[in-house]
């Protein structure tokens, strides 16, 4: 996957500076774009390589919540910062009735400057795009305590 194409996507939508992506490469598998730290894929039978960062299933392209959690803090536009109560409701999966000075489409949703994840903004409404497996993770967290 052409790196410039991917970097320009982040730049156009969120004004994330190119340098943020220094040292990363991107490749496409099916309808997802993945980010990885090495230019070539290692010679293993891999279950996964790096991280899913963009879904091409939707039009326009949709950033993953995990990619925004990593790079969204460098965004200079299309960011919505929520207060404590709104953040709690967004995190619980609710749609929020609100107006924000952002463009229609996918936005970085933050709370106290830390990224919660991806939201979909249409004028007057912010819809949570947080991954549905959130609840599963909660159970796994107990097992993950090693």
């Amino acid at each position: 996957m052409n790196k410039e194409t991917v970097v320009s996507m982040w730049k156009e939508r969120f004004s994330i500076p190119e340098e943020v992506f220094d040292g990363y490469s991107f490749f496409r598998r099916g309808r997802m774009i993945w980010a990885f730290s090495l230019p070539e894929i290692p010679p293993f039978r891999c279950e996964s390589i790096g991280m899913r960062v963009i879904s091409m299933r939707e039009s326009p392209w949709k950033p993953t919540t995990y990619a925004l959690q990593l790079w969204g803090r460098y965004a200079r536009k299309n960011v919505i910062d929520l207060d404590d109560e709104m953040a709690r409701r967004f995190f619980a999966g609710e749609s929020l009735v609100m107006r924000a000075p952002v463009e229609r489409g996918y936005v970085v949703v933050t709370h106290m400057g830390s990224v919660i994840g991806c939201g979909l903004y249409t004028p007057g409404r912010l819809i949570s795009q947080l991954p549905r497996e959130r609840r599963i993770l909660e159970v796994e967290c107990l097992q993950a305590s090693e």
Partner: peptide, 20 residues
Amino acid sequence: VPLRANLERLGAVNAVVTSY
């Protein structure tokens, strides 16, 4: 499954998961 989920949630871009 939980291995991949944890690595993704924690933002491990330099991680490759294998199952040998």
